[in-house]
């Protein structure tokens, strides 16, 4: 079994999202808690800006949960930079135990899943989970200098500048995490770093098929099925892969990255990065669930577990995906 049923139903009692200016102009713009005026966020480097976003997201989520920083027992966070410095350096500012998480762009689900299990077992009272990414820090680490005059290929995606944080607890109100499915690392041999969607889609398909099988649910049992940053091409591939496994995806399926920007924003296959799904979950999804417009959500972001070293040495790109099921609480 890869799925864990959470009998005590941990709740997301507070969430917070923060995004950059370009992201604020996208379709989800009005749902975000905070839209930065500039990508540098008044900091000297983009790395410092990303770190500040983490601090603000975590603080905001704790405040929205009606808690004090001292009430929180553990921080689970991760990002895309080498040695997840944004998360760890941000955690330095909080006086609380910290576990660094890395699941690339699936980090938000990974953190929530681990946090929910700890809360469900009543080992801890309140846990804060955070994840995020920044276009300018990711670009210089994985691709090219910002000012290099090169063109983006049609399958590429745009790393979003965004961070999101959630506070998990048994006390309080909010959407409940009813089950989590930890995913396997899947690699079907895609080597093109400009085609992450295709590299990660098999991981999402595997985790989702396992989840449907173990929970005896079907795709239509959910009001919303949300992947992270498969992008346009990746989500089309996922639909194909799931159909081959006998699951037909309907209109309730959506991908954060694919819908993160408008067509005019010229991001090719859409947005990517830890921040895309972390920010959408903690803004759009939480708000819709609180209003009761969406009741059952399958949140299943994917992560590409490669590094520039591995890519240069000719390795293919492994993907991983974790699923969590959210239900709006209250009977």
């Amino acid at each position: 079994m890869q799925t864990i049923e959470l009998k005590n139903r941990p709740k997301i009692v507070g969430g917070y999202s923060i995004v950059g200016p370009k992201e604020g102009r996208g379709p989800f713009g009005k749902y975000f808690d905070y839209v930065m005026k500039s990508d540098s966020f008044g900091e000297k480097t983009y790395e410092l800006a990303e770190r500040k976003m983490f601090e603000i997201a975590a603080t905001g989520a704790i405040q929205n949960a009606g808690l004090m920083v001292s009430d929180v027992n553990l921080m689970l966070a991760g990002d895309l930079l080498n040695q997840i410095i944004s998360s760890s350096y941000a955690a330095r500012a909080f006086n609380m135990p910290y576990l660094g998480m890395f699941g690339a762009c699936s980090t938000m689900a990974e953190s929530l899943a681990v946090g929910a299990v700890l809360i469900n077992g009543r080992h801890l009272k309140n846990v804060v989970c955070a994840s995020g990414s920044h276009f300018s820090t990711a670009e210089r680490q994985f691709r090219f200098p910002l000012e290099l005059g090169c063109q983006r290929v049609p399958t590429s995606q745009w790393t979003v500048t965004a961070a999101g944080a959630s506070v998990l607890s048994l006390e309080g109100s909010g959407p409940e995490i009813v089950s989590v499915t930890f995913g396997k690392v899947i690699d079907l041999g895609i080597k093109d770093v400009n085609n992450m969607g295709a590299a990660m889609a098999p991981a999402a398909a595997d985790t989702m098929a396992v989840h449907f099988e173990e929970t005896k649910h079907k795709p239509e049992d959910y009001d919303l099925i949300l992947t992270g940053d498969l992008g346009k091409l990746g989500s089309e591939i996922l639909i194909d892969l799931l159909e081959a496994k006998g699951y037909k995806m309907g209109k309730n399926y959506s991908d954060c990255g694919h819908s993160f920007f408008t067509r005019e924003q010229d991001t090719m296959c859409g947005g990517s990065g830890c921040g895309a799904n972390a920010a959408v979950l903690n803004s759009y999804v939480l708000k819709k669930m609180r209003k009761g417009e969406v009741k059952r959500v399958l949140f299943v972001p994917t992560g590409a577990l490669m590094s520039t070293t591995a890519t240069q040495q000719g390795e293919s790109i492994p993907g991983v995906s974790h699923a969590i099921v959210l239900e709006s609480g209250g009977k």
């Binding site: 950059g20 500039s38 540098s40 276009f135 300018s136 670009e139 200098p145 910002l146 000012e147």
Partner: peptide, 8 residues
């Protein structure tokens, strides 16, 4: 020495 990379 003078300039900084711009946000895209």
């Amino acid at each position: 020495l003078i300039f900084k990379s711009k946000t895209k």
